[in-house]
Design a binder for these strands. Structure first.
Lengths: 178, 178
DNA sequence: CCTGTGAATTGATGTATGGTAAGAAAGAAA
DNA sequence: TTTCTTTCTTACCATACATCAATTCACAGG
């Protein structure tokens, strides 16, 4: 999830309204698009062979979400992307994000963005390797307090790698502790 | 883990010999260095509050390993880095990796490197979210067949987020299946 | 206001993986 | 070689989390 304000940068792009539940990308599709979220919230997730969903990323206002590997390497998408709230988005094509005649300044911004993303991935990997369900949940609400208010619990559970039932019990425990 | 051949690029740097077990970075240190591995293998890992180790990265020949966030943001390191084989490395400082007067071509190479890393992190996150111990192990040996030969099983276990005992049982199962 | 649908909770039970401890095997050292 | 150390395996038991099923709760739509 990136922090730079991009709204200004994409202001000339046509806005697209999407309804809650609308699917923007399906696993198996070929895609050249990324989605910048101006209002609302999207999510990217996989569905594994048992039909279970695992959320890879939430994308609230000012975030960009896409199946980057599919776009960059022209592969089939592995992610589904849909809207979890009524949203206003801008559809970007790969060229909009990184042009071949990019200058050093733009490249450095891009590098910083990638490094920020890498940092957040690193933290998530360490968390998934080493933390209990309770620790994962507490880290999530500390890291994304806004999201924690907005998204259904079952999606938070999916993002942190536990079941909704377990998350419900973890929350009960936490309340009991205070 | 990057794929570009960097040996040529760092050939003018002085080589440093490190013995198996030698620690190059400790959590809590401030650091400005990254390590390019010419021969041998390093590893980066965290030690959590219970004293358990979790391996974040292996770095065999031609890889660069560092606590990137500590270097870039001048924070205390969270990782330990040590040698798991007798190794020959080059010690790089942050300026060696990314100079302020970088040209567009160098920047693009850097971007590609970051994207490759992002792709591998993405895969690891999905694996940690959704795969069983057995699936994680099989994915590891498929993805890093060389490493699987070289590093002790208990380190593979640590990397994929299970205990050495569980990995031993998983391997037994896999043998029985054939 | 009702009613339907998905979300959240709860209880009972199952299971994959962890923890502990002991011994076997494999490497390093001497 | 022999010894010492570390890794790996195995058995037994413990536990965190998952699964299944039944309510309850919270709204969105009519």
């Amino acid at each position: 999830m990136q922090e730079i304000n991009l709204k200004e940068h994409f202001k000339s792009f046509p806005a697209k309204q999407v309804k809650k539940g609308e699917i923007l990308l399906r696993a198996g599709d070929f895609t050249n698009s990324a989605f910048f979220v101006e209002e609302g919230c999207l999510r990217a997730y996989i569905i594994n062979s048992n039909g279970k969903e695992y959320i890879y990323q939430f994308a609230p206002e000012n975030w960009i979400v896409s199946d980057e590997e599919a776009v960059l390497e022209k592969k089939e998408a592995i992610f589904y992307i849909d809207a979890i709230e009524d949203s206003v988005i801008k559809v970007l094509n790969s060229g909009d994000l990184r042009s071949p005649d990019m200058n050093v300044d733009a490249a450095n911004k891009h590098i910083s963005g990638l490094q920020r993303k890498l940092n957040s991935f690193r933290k998530r990997i360490i968390l998934l390797l080493s933390a209990t369900a309770e620790e994962r949940y507490e880290t999530f609400i500390k890291t994304y307090p806004n999201l924690a208010q907005r998204v259904p619990l079952k999606m938070i559970a999916s993002y942190i790698g536990i079941t909704p039932e377990s998350l419900s019990r973890v929350r009960k425990e936490l309340v009991a502790k205070k």
